[in-house]
């Protein structure tokens, strides 16, 4: 089972001066798992994720992501993972097809590969009629689905989703989760940071960070049982309010 863990984190710590933003966190994430990484504003989840995606160096501790060390191989990590955020996703002033081509190029895919990927992706998402339209003109829900698919364009082992589905209607949000289930089914690990507790309900396992530490880590079902509540929002409130 050991080799099945695509993210391994041991005692990972980040300090800014005297302030400990991430305090010796330890956890593993399995291949194909949908892992929810939760915490209130300021709990340290963004800082922790920045270390895992190779854009921030830990103060101490170890972590490997897709087999690469966050301390010594951050560039390999960046090439190997996918990343999607609500804030930064696609270029609004490029068309759907141009965005796919651009990101395919960034990840070093061949022209042929990009062409075939674009065709598959446009077909799967049903975007044939808008393939040559500017992304800025698409509804938010379509953008989110496209953005997620583009983050998978180089077949990463792990995709990091940073608060991915805020604001869209309930049906579109479920279509988005169906895409996530599909990626997970195909063996891609999905690491979701969020403070939307309804997103947490969809994860296989979730961790909850409070003041830089992981205070709970389990399946949503077991967490709800442990705290004797019927939704993740109440689990979160119990932990964060102490």
């Amino acid at each position: 089972m050991e080799n099945n863990n695509v993210i391994k984190v041991a005692g990972l710590t980040k300090m800014f001066g005297d302030f400990t933003a991430v305090n010796a966190i330890t956890f593993d994430v399995k291949k194909g798992e949908i892992f929810g990484f939760l915490g209130a504003n300021g709990a340290g989840k963004t800082t922790a994720m920045k270390m895992l995606i190779g854009i921030s160096t830990p103060t101490s501790g170890k972590a490997t992501v897709a087999g690469f060390d966050v301390n010594t191989q951050p560039e390999q990590i960046k090439k190997t993972i996918g990343y999607m955020s609500q804030k930064f996703a696609l270029y609004d002033d490029l068309t759907v097809r141009e965005n796919i081509t651009f990101f395919g190029g960034i990840y070093g895919l061949s022209r042929e590969k990009i062409k075939s990927k674009a065709a598959i992706l446009i077909d799967e998402l049903g975007l044939e009629n808008v393939a040559n339209k500017l992304v800025g003109s698409l509804p938010l829900g379509w953008k989110q689905k496209l953005s997620f698919s583009v983050s998978l364009i180089h077949d990463p082992k792990i995709v990091f989703l940073d608060e991915p589905t805020g604001g869209v209607d309930p049906i579109t949000r479920r279509q988005f989760w169906e895409l996530i289930y599909k990626a997970s089914h195909q063996g891609t690990t999905v690491f979701v940071t969020t403070h939307y507790m309804d997103e947490a309900e969809y994860c296989d396992r979730v961790s909850i960070m409070v003041n830089g530490k992981i205070e709970a880590l389990d399946t949503p079902k077991k967490l709800k049982e442990r705290f004797k509540v019927d939704n993740m929002n109440d689990v979160f409130l119990k932990l964060a309010r102490g």
């Binding site: 049906i171 479920r174 989760w177 169906e178 289930y181 599909k182 997970s184 089914h185 309804d198 309900e201």
Partner: peptide, 24 residues
């Protein structure tokens, strides 16, 4: 045991009226 297969199978089931993922 498998969420992805479950959703796909339910969508194939000809008597379904609606199939929506809802947390676990």
């Amino acid at each position: 045991n498998n969420m992805f297969e479950l959703i796909n199978s339910l969508k194939e089931y000809k008597h379904n009226h609606s199939v929506y993922p809802f947390g676990e």
